[in-house]
Simulated scan of single mutants.
Amino acid sequence: MSETLSILIFSENRESAGMYQTLASEFQAQILIKEKNKNNLALLMERPYDFLIDEVQNPVLNEIEFVDLLSDAAPGVPILLVSSFFYDTKDIVFGRKIAGFLLKPLTFEKLQLEVKLILKQKRDRTVEEIAEMREVPPVDSLVSQNKKLSVLFEISKSINCIKDFDEMLLHIVEVAANSLDAERATLFILDSQKKELWSKSGIGIHQKEIRISIDSGIAGEVAQSNSYQIIDDPYSHPKFNKKVDKVTGFKTRNILCVPMTNINGDVIGVFQILNKKEGLFTSDDAQFLSAMAVSTGIAIENSLLREELKNQLEKVKTTYDELYIAQNQIVKETKMVNTLELLNKIKTEMFQPQTYDALISGLKNVKNFQQVLDQINLFKEKNLSYLDNAEKEIKKSTRH
């Protein structure tokens, strides 16, 4: 290892960049942060690096394959993986290709401690251990299958962690496209009552719901047949709608279309993947997407049930609120009637003419009779005025 530690980091996560810069200062290291692609792997050929960090952003097979390429390009160089995915299956998927694994959320303390530990282990390695690490184990079908199963496991976990329906749909199509290294993906949901497929989640779809008849298009054909289709030449397919490409300017080169089923095996939707970036879609791709469609279908159906239950609860709440308002209005109006009756009783009984005349007659012999009479009249006027105003306010308040 050179005197100045050199670290190559593959990450597109801007939030982590500051943490890596702090790490460089802590270890007095030279760091280089690059996007994760095969072209940047050539940097490992230009100069040696002492340490590699790979930040895994998605639970897709491409991420696993990138770690394989890193290990092949820099045998013996420790690789630290940072991710929210593959932790439970890291030993099966990555084996000895990685020196450490940090589970997100990432903190500087965790990063610093793990790097120190890995560098110490590297210094303590024997020549035999280093030689053993450089030996590349044979890749067989079982290893490949384990990797695919691990990806499916992580995809299923990530989908079921999302509660918002629209957010979950968007995550599913992004993962589907990334998993198969395709340009576009669309997820159609079956509306069995209207016999339509609808979607508002897809790469290239801008949150606008689209609906197609189940009797039209390749997606409709797959939904009815409950079997996948691989189409290498869409423009020669009788069900392919060329108008969509003409309107959007997108050129469809190849298609993989797979039915999505629920736990009972009933079709509830369709995956449509467009344009594999390298080569054509294969039966392995179809099997992988079909396996993904099973767990996805169960998650979507559960989410739809939650949405339906949520809507029903909203309806119950709205009905209750309306009843509560109506009840309050009835109580309010009843109180108003009772209050108005009481006011009227006070006005008619307390100040009726005979009561007033009897009171005047009894006070005629009192000195300063005129002053007493003035006070009584004033009292009468003020209270009648108060009662009249109170009556008006009560009537006014019930109109709102």
Rank of each mutant, 00 (worst) to 15 (best):
S2K: 12
L8C: 01
N13H: 10
M19D: 05
T22E: 09
S25Q: 12
F51T: 04
V56C: 06
N58M: 07
V60W: 02
E65G: 01
V67A: 00
D68A: 07
D68V: 03
G76E: 07
F85I: 06
F101A: 13
L103P: 00
P105C: 04
L119E: 06
Q121N: 13
R123N: 05
L142R: 13
V143S: 08
Q145R: 09
L149C: 12
I155P: 02
K157Q: 11
C161V: 11
C161P: 00
M168W: 08
I172C: 10
V173F: 05
A177H: 04
A182E: 08
D191A: 01
G202Y: 01
I203W: 03
K208R: 06
V222W: 11
S225Q: 03
S225D: 03
N241K: 11
K242Y: 12
V244C: 03
D245V: 05
T252H: 01
L256Y: 08
T261M: 04
I263H: 08
G279D: 03
T282S: 15
A299V: 11
E301S: 06
S303C: 06
L304V: 05
L309K: 14
I330C: 04
V331K: 10
K332R: 10
M336S: 14
E341Y: 06
L343P: 01
K345F: 13
E349C: 08
Y356V: 14
I360L: 09
E391L: 07
I394L: 10
T398S: 15
